[in-house]
Computed example of a mutant assay.
Amino acid sequence: DKEFDGFFMKTAYRYPVRTVAPGAAVDPADMTPVHSLRPKSVIVSPVDGETLAPGAVKIQGAAWAGEYPITSVEVSADSGRNWRPAKLGPDKAKYGWRFWETDWSAGRTGSYVLMARATDEAGETQPLVEEWNPSGYLWNVAQQVRVEVSTVPAQPRVEQTPTVPPFPPQVKGACIGCHGEDMIAGQKLTRPQWGREIDKMTRWGAPVKPEDRGAIIEFLLSHFGPRH
């Protein structure tokens, strides 16, 4: 008969009710709880950076949503200018995955950007441009996969594992208890953004000592700032 008033509904899992500029501070009064999932899809084949031979290519992936099942997936092979429907798998259920595939004729050599966007039963479709929010909740912008069509055989792919620097004790104590190092490494925030993130986590209970705050921000900015 009323909204749950626990910590995560009142404080943590919230996003803006209006469009805000990237990095801007948001008044708590302008935030609402995350209460549903938006439609999302991923391309699993081909993979980003793959070189393909001209001819028939099967593009495959999966889509999922929340309370409303996935009803369609569209695929583009020209950076989103034109779209074609994909064939959906038989599974159709709320909160469930739905596999999809489509055939693409890669007739000319060159670079291509493949994209996929899903639509759920409520009519919501993945956006092509994502609206920013402080915690990145409900991020579901249409994925882009870049491929090269070439008559030259592809060279074996060498996977490069990003190097994550050793985390100093104060950063481990404040951050690693709740977040993996790879998640922190992917943020790429500015100094003000890291400062707000540290202050937010401190309010949520992260053990950040006042005397360590500056050193933590300096480490995060030096290794995981916008230029990295």
Rank of each mutant, 00 (worst) to 15 (best):
V75Y: 00
V75N: 01
S76K: 02
S76Q: 04
S76W: 01
S76E: 11
A77F: 00
D78N: 09
R81G: 00
N82Q: 07
N82T: 14
W83N: 04
P85S: 02
A86R: 05
K87F: 05
P90A: 01
D91L: 02
K92V: 04
Y95T: 08
Y95E: 12
Y95V: 12
G96A: 14
G96H: 08
R98N: 08
R98E: 09
R98S: 07
F99N: 11
F99Q: 08
F99D: 13
W100K: 09
E101D: 12
E101S: 15
T102S: 10
T102N: 07
D103Y: 08
D103F: 10
W104F: 07
W104A: 14
W104E: 11
G107T: 10
R108K: 15
S111V: 02
M115W: 13
R117G: 05
R117E: 11
A118N: 15
T119E: 09
T119F: 01
E121T: 05
A122Q: 14
A122T: 07
A122I: 04
A122Y: 05
A122P: 01
G123P: 10
G123S: 06
T125S: 14
T125H: 11
T125I: 04
Q126N: 07
Q126D: 12
L128H: 15
L128E: 15
L128F: 14
V129P: 14
V129I: 01
E131P: 00
N133M: 11
N133Y: 04
S135W: 07
W139Q: 13
V141C: 09
Q143A: 02
Q143D: 10
Q144T: 03
V145P: 15
R146H: 11
V147T: 13
V147S: 13
S150C: 02
T151F: 00
T151I: 04
T151S: 04
T151L: 04
V152S: 06
P153T: 08
A154Y: 05
Q155E: 11
Q155H: 01
R157V: 00
V158E: 15
V158Y: 13
P162W: 05
T163C: 01
V164T: 03
V164D: 00
F167M: 12
F167T: 02
P168S: 14
P169R: 15
P169L: 06
Q170R: 09
V171E: 08
V171C: 13
A174T: 07
A174C: 07
A174M: 05
C175N: 09
I176Y: 10
G177F: 06
C178R: 04
C178G: 13
C178D: 07
H179I: 13
G180E: 06
E181M: 12
E181G: 05
D182S: 08
M183G: 06
M183F: 02
M183V: 10
G186T: 08
G186S: 06
Q187C: 09
Q187N: 08
K188R: 07
L189N: 04
L189H: 03
R191D: 07
P192T: 13
Q193G: 02
W194H: 03
W194Q: 07
G195N: 10
R196E: 15
R196S: 14
E197H: 03
E197C: 08
E197Q: 14
I198W: 00
I198C: 10
D199C: 05
D199R: 09
T202V: 09
R203H: 06
R203G: 15
W204Q: 07
W204G: 13
G205R: 00
P207H: 03
P207R: 06
P207Y: 02
V208M: 04
P210K: 14
P210Y: 08
